[in-house]
Design a protein around this nucleic acid. Sequence first.
DNA 1: GCCCTCAGGGTACTCAGTTCCCGCCGAAAA
DNA 2: TTTTCGGCGGGAACTGAGTACCCTGAGGGC
Lengths: 232, 232
Amino acid sequence: MTPAPKPPMRDTLVAAALQLFTEHGFEQTTVDDIVALAGVGRRSFFRYFPSKESVVFPDHEGCLRRMTEFLADPAGDAADPVDRVNDAARLVLRMYTGDPEFSVRRYELTRQVPALRAHELSVVRRYERTLANYLRARFAARADGRLRADVIAAAVVAAHNHALRTWLRSAASIDPEAEVDHALEYVTATWSDREDGEAADGTGPADDVVVMVARRGTPMWRVVQGVQGVLE
Amino acid sequence: MTPAPKPPMRDTLVAAALQLFTEHGFEQTTVDDIVALAGVGRRSFFRYFPSKESVVFPDHEGCLRRMTEFLADPAGDAADPVDRVNDAARLVLRMYTGDPEFSVRRYELTRQVPALRAHELSVVRRYERTLANYLRARFAARADGRLRADVIAAAVVAAHNHALRTWLRSAASIDPEAEVDHALEYVTATWSDREDGEAADGTGPADDVVVMVARRGTPMWRVVQGVQGVLE
DNA sequence: GCCCTCAGGGTACTCAGTTCCCGCCGAAAA
DNA sequence: TTTTCGGCGGGAACTGAGTACCCTGAGGGC
């Protein structure tokens, strides 16, 4: 019978802040303006948000927690580590697509306010470190495992954010899942240990033999391109 | 005949700030403390540094400018793009190795002060965007060129920073160049267009033909590993 | 002499973020 | 019903970063 099981004051503050930020700009809006519009005390703002910037990213704490729980689930230990990290990144995408209007407004705002970009960077960094720490554990036995983990985590985050921004720039009019899948495939194709044959779409027996002929000195990207062209 | 061609006040401020930060901590030190120790006015501090954090990274502006100039030099247009951004990243390494004591002190400081970590993030981000923009131009004609540029730039920065931090953690006692070369090779081997044969050590004619046999469904990293094993 | 420029200094202000304390309200105990 | 208690929300005052404005004084050209 409780229409608002979550405390509404937090949401009220977010709505008031976003409205004022988009109307008058981030720097021009003071915290006093926000709490005046929300009809609460100034003290309450900092009870819910540690800084003026964080009110623009109200759901990242929860998303980071979900990502940590997802990666800690032992049910995923059998999966390919890079696939696992990609799925973890998709949790972030889902948070954005869960409220497209808010996400697009936030994107426009963040794009033109340096303080918000800086705050977003530290948020993204925490995702990246979460992914990297997971990969470090999975690659512990591998040579250069920590380096590999850091590079792959950075690549996954970069690919995810590239696709996410493409979707946001389109005003949420394209298919975000397809965009992210395509971008993450760029990373997976190169770094994953996954056996693609198992999950293939059946356009050929899994044990076909493919022969790739290359001249010594051929750039690696061209080899990959050639093999991909044959395998797909 | 000028013993200090550069204004010494800037260096005085940096030295005073670093001393107070390491002695009493970053948050505990106020800008007034810094200018009092440096013997200058408070106003002068903000004439040289836009924020309290930026005094810890006094040389990044110049390094970013050098990187931009380096990438704008048309002499490099013939080189492989990934090699080019790797060399650009090495400019940053050289700035750190140019003053190892300062770099190690800054690393210790940054490691335990969230505000400094956030500021470093925005600095690193500018390097990454500079590299990505260069690669975007070089990959303009390629399919998914922008995605590729963003992912490679992120991977290069991650590899560089991984090696840099390894060196800093060692208290500058290991060979930083070798560490970075090794880390960047991780990225180059996968993404570069460079013709390895040309620069090979002559263990075979450049136009040997290599045959790589793979089963359909073989993971791409295993294909790359196999081809690399034959080509090297 | 005068005027112009400009690096540096000082003062006062805004506002984010913190600290401390108070009032309110609902629940449980007496 | 009254008392006590605990937690949420409010308010006042404080610290300190960053900014705006104006002053001074040293050079440098005329």
